[in-house]
Design a protein around this nucleic acid. Structure first.
Length: 873
RNA sequence: GCGGACGUGGCGAAAUCGGUAGACGCACGAGACUUAAAAUCUUGCGCCGCAAGGCGUGCGGGUUCGAGUCCCGCCGUCCGCACCA
């Protein structure tokens, strides 16, 4: 009677071997079935993974396996985001070559990932550091160059003067280099850019169509692109000023032309050409500008920085009132790379301008009157007013709404001319900047360009691609090793043959990940980016990854796909039709009395929130759940889970309880609960096989009450879990399986007590069969083992999803809750076909209702068919 | 500062449309089996109350026959952006 325990340690490697040998997860490009492309964001090969890394792969795997059972040709690939700084740090710190370090990590992480039993097509595995991958990336770069989508310009970098190296923003901590501790300077370097701004409007507009993306990601992208509509206004310099400045006009960008009559000054960025010109003969101004450029670009510094300005002595004429002039300042809060690098300040309606005006005693003239406010008493204190209102103090604009006033000013200024030019032009601006892809690093994709003194930057001829990274480099000195790799660097110019040198910048690793999903589509290494294959597989039906990539990676990928389309390389526009952002796995942290972090296996939990160290018994300080991280040691390696419980338990646990988009806590109790449930499924299936009908038994003509109830439950399970998985509501799917297991267990108990007549034997067998398939995507190894016990020859992984019989999903009676004054008081069972009048009559006949009404007639009865009845007493 | 999301038992949570609040699981209690333990099974478990009953989805209002769900105002937590004119 008692079944053997399910032995995961035996079963899991066995089934994984069979899946691998039969190649059942290989996707074929010529498969005629409908396609389904599911992928998770590929990992950075940092070394070892912990169980927390597994969550998104498992979620994608459930969907992949489910879709296969539904008859789809599924592409579920995996690869490695293999370029990047940590490999170079390892080289510096431990003397290991980045390539060696990376490929070692890939090997061990692949082994760990395979342990999870994921249904991946490893034949399409890619590593971005592989020359076969980045060769195509270099071709793409040349395509972009030819199309004008890649270009070079001067741009500021963080420069570490001690290490003589360029730092990434995250390597600048409190304005200092992370390794050297030296104060970071801003330096200008000539760098490569991709023209993402050319697609800003389209990237923004297309967000509306991303219906299967989380709203918040769409919102974040919209904000990041940051479209604003405004006016570029020419301010005429006063005569004396024009002479001093060497120009007649100053161009200013504003989104609030309506507030022009409230303007009290102009402000230039420290980087503005006019500011630079004036500083040549003005030491005080030069000093001020240098002062502005000090300090990092970090948010905290900028936030707390006081508004400061330098009065240039220049004045401009107010565009709408020639009798009025405004002073021109250079100010530390004006950005050069947004708009025109110059603004007009309207202190009454902009907080920054107000702060500035108060400091330099400039006029504060309110021109927008809040609704229901007395114009005589309205005054600006310490807070600018940026709300709705009506224009006043503004001559011909008085009485207008803000939008009307904007329009009126625009029309007026468009008509005015200064030196043949209209005084104002409507201009749309974006917060989004072009994407600087140059990195002064070794471990990245080389930019395929040769610099020649005579010819300038010359693309490497395509027949000479790829430009491979030289292996023979050293990391013993600061700076980019490629600069010192003279044998690699120094080459003749492809155009004129004169001595020249290679571009030593490599590409931002975000470039690598901006097209890897297109690479997966091709099963042909000769054609890594295959238009036909891309047309077949793309867009990705379901992309799964962390919220940390909500903006950059996803926006860059959307841009890249469009840019490739513009170059004629692909026909797809939007790469990811469905996006899901999963939560992290968190775990409690443990510290001993000396404050050292402890691994979970060093700790014994006492159940009351307290814990002790396993070996010494000393008290352990238990911290709140945090993201699993090596440094805090709150990690659980997948091997340990696989050895003690089996990976199916880990998979089940990761899918249970917590909605997949939220953070989920890994606990001992949780994994044990999963283990119990895995055993329970095994027991239910084996017991049902023992009690039930044989595999090939025909369905009886009629079923008894028990059998019908069980059949309703199992067919209902197939339908509801299908729906749950389609909607990625794995925790709900798990709950539904639990619910079914309870019903199944009761049916088995009933069969033991009362026999398996009236078709119960068939129903038991059918229930086991359905259960094995329904849990298959979630606990695939267990499902295979069950499938074997059920006597099937093939693999559960290749079985079809159980089709629910619609007749069994329909009920002929329904239980309606009965409310009195909105509070539930009773239930009533009525035929599904009952009319509202019949229901009403039945309800009024209920004893509980009669009692509640106490002889009085009800005021009202609301019958919502098949939902509820509410009696208003 | 601006924008957004969320707030339900001791805990993780569920509740397609405005229609039975707390499904399912964890933890805990009681019982059965066992020499014993584990496992398993049965059973209880929002709060107050002996009960009848009352209260209950962050707080305060509103709409409705009926509100976790919709509207208004607060409070709290988390996230994104942050001198973008």
């Amino acid at each position: 009677m008692t079944a053997d325990r399910y032995n995961a340690r035996d079963a899991e490697p066995r089934w994984q071997k069979i899946w691998r040998e039969r190649g059942i997860f290989r996707a074929r490009n010529d498969d005629p079935r409908p396609k389904f492309f599911v992928m998770e964001m590929f990992p950075y090969p940092s070394g070892r993974i912990h169980i927390g890394h597994g969550r998104n792969y498992v979620m994608g795997d459930v969907l992949a396996r489910y879709k296969r059972m539904r008859g789809f040709n599924v592409l579920h690939p995996m690869g490695w985001d293999a370029f990047g700084l940590p490999a170079e740090n390892a080289a510096i710190e431990r003397g290991i070559h980045p390539k060696e370090w990376t490929y070692q990590n890939i090997a061990s992480m692949k082994e760990q990932l395979q342990l999870l039993g994921l249904s991946l097509d490893w034949d399409r595995e890619i590593a971005t550091c592989d020359p076969s991958y980045y060769a195509e990336q270099q071709r793409i770069f040349l395509d972009f160059l030819e199309a004008g989508l890649a270009y070079r310009k001067e741009s500021e970098v963080n420069w570490d003067p001690v290490d003589n190296t360029v730092l990434a923003n995250e390597q600048v901590i409190d304005g200092r280099g992370w390794r050297s501790g030296a104060v970071v300077e801003r330096r200008k370097l000539s760098q490569w850019f991709l023209r993402i701004t050319g697609f800003a409007q389209e990237l923004l507009d297309a967000i509306d169509g991303l219906e299967r993306w989380p709203d918040r990601v769409r919102l974040m992208q919209r904000n990041w692109i940051g479209r604003s509509e405004g006016l570029e206004v020419l301010f005429e310099l006063s005569k004396a000023s024009a002479k001093a400045a060497g120009s007649e006009t100053l161009k200013v960008y504003t989104t609030r032309p309506d507030t022009l009559f409230g303007a009290s000054f102009l402000a230039l960025s420290a980087d503005h050409p006019l500011a630079q010109t004036l500083a040549r003969d003005n030491a005080a101004l030069a000093n001020f500008i240098a002062e502005c450029k000090k300090g990092g670009t970090s948010a905290e510094i900028i936030e707390t920085q006081e508004k400061q300005g330098y009065d240039t002595g220049l004045t401009v004429v107010h565009p709408l009132d020639p009798t009025q002039t405004l002073p021109v300042y250079v100010a530390n809060f004006v950005l050069m790379d947004y708009g025109t690098g110059a603004i007009f300040g309207c202190p009454a309606h902009d907080q920054r301008d107000l702060d500035f005006a108060r400091k330099y005693h400039l006029p504060v003239v309110p021109v927008v009157l809040p609704p229901d406010t007395d114009p005589g008493s309205f005054a600006i204190g310490d807070e600018a007013y940026d709300g709705e209102g009506t224009l006043f103090n503004s001559r011909f604009l008085d009485g207008m709404s803000i939008p009307d006033a904007k329009e009126a000013v625009a029309r007026q200024l468009e008509r005015f001319r200064i030196a043949e030019e209209p005084q104002a032009v409507r201009r749309v601006n974006f917060r989004l900047r072009d994407w600087g892809i140059s990195r002064q690093r070794y471990w990245g994709c080389p930019i395929p360009v040769i610099h020649c003194a005579a010819c300038g930057p010359v693309p490497v001829p395509r027949d000479q691609l790829p430009v491979k990274l030289p292996d023979d480099v050293t990391f013993d000195r600061p700076g980019n090793p490629l600069d010192r790799a003279t044998a690699w660097r120094d080459v003749p110019c492809p155009k004129c043959g004169a001595p020249a040198h290679r571009e030593t910048d490599t590409m931002d690793t975000f470039v690598d990940s901006s097209w890897y999903f297109l690479r997966y589509a091709s099963d042909n290494t000769e054609r890594p980016l295959d238009k036909g294959a891309v047309a077949h597989w793309l867009p990705v039906d379901q992309y799964i990854g962390g919220i940390e990539h909500a903006i950059l990676h996803l926006l860059y990928s959307r841009f890249f796909t469009r840019a490739l389309k513009a170059c004629g390389r692909v026909d797809v526009t939007e790469p990811f039709a469905g996006l899901f952002t999963q939560g992290m796995i968190v775990h409690e942290t443990y510290k001993d009395q000396a404050g050292r972090w402890l691994f979970p296996e060093e700790v014994k939990l006492l159940g009351n929130g307290k814990a002790v160290k396993v070996d010494t018994g000393e008290d352990v300080v238990v911290g709140p759940p945090e993201k699993m991280s090596k440094s805090k040691r709150n990690v659980v390696p997948p091997e340990v889970v696989a050895d003690t419980y089996g990976v199916d338990c880990a998979r089940w646990f990761m899918l249970s309880d917590t909605p997949p988009e939220r953070d989920s806590e890994w606990t001992q109790a949780g994994i044990e609960g999963a283990w119990r449930f895995v055993q329970r499924v095994w027991r239910l299936v084996t017991e049902a096989v023992e009690l039930g009908a044989p595999a090939d038994a025909p369905a009886p003509a009629a079923f008894g009450k028990e059998a019908t109830a069980l059949r309703r439950a199992s067919h209902g399970l197939a339908a509801t879990v299908a729906d749950d998985v389609e909607r990625l509501r794995f925790n709900v799917a798990v709950a539904h399986v639990h619910e079914f297991a309870n019903a199944f267990g009761q049916a088995i108990a009933a069969a033991r007590a009362g026999g398996t007549g009236d078709g119960l034997d068939f129903a038991l067998r059918e229930a086991a069969d359905i259960l094995a398939r329904v849990v298959g995507p979630m606990v695939p190894h267990l499902a295979e083992e069950c499938w074997g016990v059920l006597g099937h020859d093939g693999l559960a992984a290749e079985a079809a999803w159980p089709e629910a019989d619609p007749a069994l999903l329909k009920r002929d009676t329904i239980t309606l809750p009965i409310q009195i004054n909105g509070r539930k008081r009773d239930d009533i069972e009525v035929p599904l076909s009952a009319t509202p009048a019949e229901v009403e009559a039945a309800v009024l006949a209920l004893e509980s209702i009669q009692r509640a009404l106490d002889g009085r007639p009800p005021k009202r009865i609301i019958v919502v068919p098949q939902r509820i009845v509410n009696v208003v007493a």
